Amino acid sequence: MSLEADSGKMSVVDHLTELRRRIIYVLLVFVGGLIAGLFCAKPIYNYLIHADLAQGFVLHAFSFWDGIGMYMKIAMAVSLLLSVPFIVYQLWAFVSPGLRDEERSAALRYVPYVFVLFMLGIAFAYYVVFPLALSFTISITRSMGLVETYGIAQYFSFMFSLVLPLALLFELPLLVMFLTKLRILNPLRLRKMRRYAYFVLVFIAVVITPPDFISDFLVMIPLLVLYEFSVFLSALVYRKQLAADAEAEARYSQHKSG
């Protein structure tokens, strides 16, 4: 038996084998979610087009593949929604052997909230940001006297380009709390880098949204609010850490003097 095996450490080959195994698990879950998404694509489609029906326009297909493409986009969105908690857990399981007990406990504690924040992000983006952006773009089109002919592919591309990135960015507070728990970040550092963080978030908002100012603005404001909320949560975690450190130091001083 090798010295490496005796020490309980994994070789590079073992790590790659473990990574491949977990990637296969993720792919299997994603494919399963894709199949489930195909079965429920029709009712989801009927629900999602409620916004455009309220606006009084009809969606059109401009190619033979538009309908199939719409079904596949919905199925992939459903699969992503079902896979996110499993992906996060597999990521945690892969890196957890290299973490300390405190880091492992902190990571596992935050896993369930990944799904909760992702769902909140989807709800906010779909029920708040998307209707406002859709109403604004339609009002501009009608004010210019243009004939409205909307394709189903363009409609869902517009929707997903707003909803999915914003849902993923809703994980920012959780990520900041986790990094604060690991003492990589703290509220003082976050406040010092606020200007740079704002610039990055504004850039992200411009990149992920359709090319109109109102969409950029509707995504930009929630991202800045999320950053400030992340600073607030980081401060809560940091204060608990300082209190725990002070208590540990007091116990050590008392033990030393005793």
Rank of each mutant, 00 (worst) to 15 (best):
T149I: 09
M177D: 02
R239H: 10
Y110G: 01
G258F: 07
H60W: 01
R194K: 08
V116L: 10
D66R: 06
P97E: 13
V13C: 06
L172W: 03
L3G: 08
L162D: 00
L169N: 05
G8W: 13
I24S: 07
L80D: 08
L134I: 02
V78A: 04
P165I: 04
I214A: 02
K240W: 08
L166D: 04
I214W: 01
M177F: 05
I208F: 11
M1G: 09
L34E: 06
V206F: 06
L190C: 13
L34W: 01
F86T: 08
V26T: 07
V202G: 09
L164R: 00
T17E: 08
T209H: 03
F64P: 00
R194P: 03
L81N: 04
S215E: 00
F62C: 01
L175S: 14
L175P: 14
P173S: 06
T137N: 01
T141G: 11
R189V: 14
Q241E: 05
L236H: 14
S2P: 15
I221S: 08
V26H: 02
Y71H: 13
N186A: 02
F130S: 10
L80N: 07
A248E: 12
Y126G: 12
S139K: 14
V95A: 10
Y25H: 04
L242F: 10
A36T: 15
T137R: 04
Q154I: 00
P211Y: 09
Y238M: 00
F39N: 08
F229I: 05
S105Q: 12
L59N: 13
M1A: 04
E4D: 15
M70H: 06
